[in-house]
Nucleic acid binder design. Sequence first.
DNA 1: CAAAGCATTTGACCTGGATCAAGGAGCCAT
DNA 2: ATGGCTCCTTGATCCAGGTCAAATGCTTTG
Lengths: 249, 249
Amino acid sequence: MFKVDNMHRPRSILLLPQHEHDPCSSCAARGYSVCSAIDDKDLGRLAATAIVRDIAKGETFIEEGDSASDFFNVTRGTVKLYKLLPDGRQQVTGFAGAGHFLGLAVSNTYAFSAEAIEPTRVCRFSRPKLRELLHDFPALEERLLQTACNELVAAQEQMLLLGRKTARERVASFLVNRLETAMPCAGPTDSVALPMTRSEIADYLGLTIETVSRTFSRFKAEKRITTPSNAEVVILDRPWLSGVAAGLQ
Amino acid sequence: MFKVDNMHRPRSILLLPQHEHDPCSSCAARGYSVCSAIDDKDLGRLAATAIVRDIAKGETFIEEGDSASDFFNVTRGTVKLYKLLPDGRQQVTGFAGAGHFLGLAVSNTYAFSAEAIEPTRVCRFSRPKLRELLHDFPALEERLLQTACNELVAAQEQMLLLGRKTARERVASFLVNRLETAMPCAGPTDSVALPMTRSEIADYLGLTIETVSRTFSRFKAEKRITTPSNAEVVILDRPWLSGVAAGLQ
DNA sequence: CAAAGCATTTGACCTGGATCAAGGAGCCAT
DNA sequence: ATGGCTCCTTGATCCAGGTCAAATGCTTTG
């Protein structure tokens, strides 16, 4: 079920300079992630601490309430973070892409569940190992604090969205946000990838599938966006969408 | 406009043991706040870094978007944290009581506004001074990270509330939450103090004043709570309220 | 390529909570 | 006390978005 990429490469770790085979030094997510707090020379140490794991689409690898034994760093794919009510109502609290650090909770149990919504790869750190790392690399702790603060700001913005924005404003915010934050690598395009389903978007925005779909349709009819496929949106009128997202218009 | 308490005391700092006049060693909020990460012997250093300031009810002392030059620690009173949309819609993202640390944002500008909803006292730290403190007391940084994580967990819980709970569930959650978290000092009473107005509760729960009021009235009619005054609620049936808050019943 | 199985779209209708509109009730300052 | 606040409650009505119900694709598999 899981494919670990390293298995497909010759394991000649003794013959080549270490960094050639160190999963961290070649990690595409390194630039955005908390790992950037660690110098190249110490990457070997980081690689030795982390366990790379591939996660299939649809697999839940963190369950709310479970004992929080590990921390994760997403290096590929996308993860949906969510909370459930006993009757099945779901609130998606965020989507975590490459570079995102998961498990930032002091408590002994996870406060949310996490499910891969496309083939995903994570680095896993056990709690004691992370503690060691934090002790040895104070810069890492500072970086984690930064990360936590940024997430806090994003969470407050999401509370504003959920508590006070209309359906139109929510969907516009979502699209603009995806364009701004989810695509640090892509060029100055106005194309947004949507690896999640309409249902997951709805659960993220506090709406229903039908309302999300209708709002997309209205934006299309008004020539503000086009949808080449269900998993892709092209933004035609970004200033207007930004205005709607901010609560104007 | 601002009353600094120290000005009202004789400045005999040279004549008495330092801790007698050190605002930190006698601070009621010290136990709950990030300051508990600092040893008693270093409290003088902390006191020298912080500037105590009293804030009148209704005064906004942090404005969203302003340059984030200072950090605050609430030591008395209650602060409302909120975000605004251009047309005046307001989302309260939290209420900060004694011990709460404000300004946990890496960015150069504040991500929210803060207004005292009752007479409040804060300790103010300038950004460079806090940076010095963090450098000298690594335990403080760890404590801040813990704090940030706890707030993140609370924020996710609030997203679930705003995105998926009914008005009844929201109000029940609010009351139960107040009982659990806002009163660490009080005994095992079922009385909840509400220093905020109905309007502020509504803006916190993503509802209107009217809905909050009607929901309180219904809980009263069902003998689940009583309201000795507008600023106080006594919970009569806590298990039931907890159930409603969790989405059962 | 047909059939099954989803995810998505669209339409018709319904409802929880918003909006609009009076009244009460506490709280100063005069 | 009394007038003038502001905050809170309650009632009547409305509507944005939810719910229910059918299509309509879009993949996948045989």
